[in-house]
Amino acid sequence: MRVAVQTDPFDLGAEAAGFAAAAAGAGAVVTFTGIVRPTDTGALQAMEIEHYPGMTERAIAAMMDQARARWGLIDALVIHRHGRLALGEPIMMVATAAAHRAAAFEAAEFLMDYLKSRAPFWKKEITDAGADWVAAREADEDALTRWQAS
């Protein structure tokens, strides 16, 4: 299991291929990539992502441990960038490897839901109209309850 919190871009293809090749015994590998998208208001010039060094790595590692135990993952990978990102740039990726696809898909969704609301990152959108912190969505918080209920 690997967590990388970095300013540098990452090579999605190379990371996915390397992850899959190293996941011995896996029958399923799922990857998800988050990308800087246009905003609803004003033309996006850039996105700035702030994080809490130390807590970020620790919080993500804890989520990955939980996912591994719950879905019997063979391996997991989280790469999350911070700093200034341009429109269309990859922000982060998650990869999970398991014996079967249901576990790999579910674990990836679990990690995404937790990364959104429990990993200490904050996004700021820089648009023509100015700079604004992205507000957390209630739906993102609600998404966590399904993992707690079952």
Binding site: K116, R118, K123, E141
Partner: peptide, 10 residues
């Protein structure tokens, strides 16, 4: 101790 708004990762 750290204070911050709700997180917006992912």
């Amino acid at each position: 101790v750290a204070f911050f708004p709700p997180m917006t990762g992912g």
